[in-house]
Amino acid sequence: MKDQVLKIKVPGKLFIAGEYAILEQGHSAVVIAVDRYMIGEISSSDYNELHLPQIGLNNIKWQVKGKKILFNIEDSKLSFVKNALYTVIRFFKEKGIALRPFSLTVESELDDGEGKKYGLGSSAAIVVTVVTAMLHFFQDKKIQPTEELIYKLSAIAHYYTQGNGSCADIAASTFGGWLKYTMFDHSWLDHEINAGTNLIKLVDQKWPLLEIKRIHPPQDLYLVVGWTGKSVSTVPMVRSIQALRTNHFEVYQEFLSQSKYAVSRLIESFYENNSLRAVESLTDNRHALMHLGELATVDIETPELKKLISIANRYGSGKSSGAGGGDCGIAFVINKEHVAKLEKDWQQANIEPLKLNVSLTGASVKTITKNHH
């Protein structure tokens, strides 16, 4: 048994449409999983240990003390992992599952080896990796590690760390593929967690408003992704947008209705296999986001993103992805020959085309057997 190692692969994510609006009730987003992965390995050990080699954190020992998880080092980069461990251990205790020590290593392909950060959702992916690894490692009759269970426990862990966010990235990393995503009722989860509702009850019930639905793009639609060369911190941008929402709600409502129109048209275009309409809807969503950026006086579209988009518009349509302000932009192109031309034009403009495809599988696990050294 000692030799059994579970290998976990969890894809990163990109937003296609519906950014910012997704945080409001009744709004949906389109999000995808991409074929860059967080890779985890979990195996039995004599004590609990954690290895995150890429951020220089190896041989971290940890233990459960009452309601806390104590690491032998303090590092803010560990907060997502700590809350993921805490959430799953609490769930196991409620289920009456005995813990045994394990070693967990997590490495990321989401950013480039030279330290370029692309904004592919690494904090969500690491939470999903830890949750998936533990659920499968301790799997027995009492636990079936379904996608829904992984998503819900990851969303709760993410909530403990950040207290906000749509968790669309968690859905993409868990389920894979192209998703139509509608966020759960945030105030409901807030209330349940603060009331100390037990996790078994929380994960077993239907979460109000939550919808995660696989969708399929038109057959002749190509997604192309470019990186602007600048990574971005989402938090300050989200704050500026929230300030607009608080102080000028009627103006913000205008953005919401524009976004809703664009996203619902995009989803319809998928159902109708209508690539032309998909291209138009992406433009509509871009305009809604530009308008929002102007109103909130934030650079959702940096000069680099504007350049990326105007080049994309020669061949189809382009927009920022995620919070904007840097990171990646995306393009919808209908003609396969145009993909190569677009990528070439981007390169000439110092925009790096990323060889990203949609990962049709979400979090996955396989057993590998290692020999004793």
Rank of each mutant, 00 (worst) to 15 (best):
residue 5 V to E: 15
residue 9 K to R: 15
residue 10 V to Y: 02
residue 19 E to N: 03
residue 21 A to L: 02
residue 42 I to N: 01
residue 42 I to D: 03
residue 43 S to G: 06
residue 48 N to P: 03
residue 54 Q to A: 07
residue 62 W to H: 08
residue 63 Q to N: 12
residue 63 Q to E: 11
residue 64 V to T: 09
residue 68 K to Y: 10
residue 81 V to N: 03
residue 95 K to Q: 15
residue 98 A to N: 14
residue 98 A to Y: 08
residue 100 R to L: 07
residue 105 T to Q: 11
residue 108 S to M: 05
residue 126 I to Q: 02
residue 127 V to L: 01
residue 129 T to F: 01
residue 131 V to W: 02
residue 135 L to M: 10
residue 140 D to T: 07
residue 148 E to L: 13
residue 151 Y to L: 14
residue 155 A to P: 04
residue 156 I to Y: 00
residue 159 Y to A: 05
residue 164 N to E: 11
residue 166 S to N: 09
residue 182 T to L: 00
residue 184 F to D: 01
residue 187 S to K: 14
residue 188 W to I: 08
residue 194 N to T: 14
residue 195 A to C: 06
residue 195 A to S: 15
residue 195 A to G: 06
residue 197 T to S: 13
residue 200 I to Q: 08
residue 203 V to S: 09
residue 203 V to K: 10
residue 212 I to G: 04
residue 218 P to S: 08
residue 220 D to N: 13
residue 221 L to R: 08
residue 224 V to M: 02
residue 233 S to E: 15
residue 235 V to R: 14
residue 236 P to I: 06
residue 237 M to Q: 06
residue 240 S to N: 14
residue 241 I to M: 05
residue 241 I to N: 00
residue 244 L to A: 03
residue 244 L to E: 00
residue 259 S to K: 10
residue 261 Y to N: 12
residue 262 A to E: 01
residue 263 V to N: 07
residue 271 Y to V: 03
residue 276 L to M: 09
residue 282 L to H: 09
residue 284 D to R: 08
residue 290 M to E: 12
residue 297 T to N: 15
residue 305 L to M: 11
residue 307 K to Y: 03
residue 310 S to C: 11
residue 313 N to E: 13
residue 321 S to V: 06
residue 325 G to P: 02
residue 327 D to T: 04
residue 328 C to I: 03
residue 328 C to L: 09
residue 330 I to M: 04
residue 334 I to A: 02
residue 335 N to S: 13
residue 336 K to V: 12
residue 341 K to Y: 08
residue 343 E to D: 05
residue 345 D to K: 07
residue 346 W to G: 02
residue 348 Q to Y: 11
residue 348 Q to W: 06
residue 351 I to L: 15
residue 354 L to Y: 04
residue 355 K to P: 02
residue 358 V to S: 11
residue 362 G to R: 04
residue 365 V to G: 04
residue 366 K to W: 06
residue 368 I to V: 15
residue 369 T to R: 15
residue 373 H to M: 06
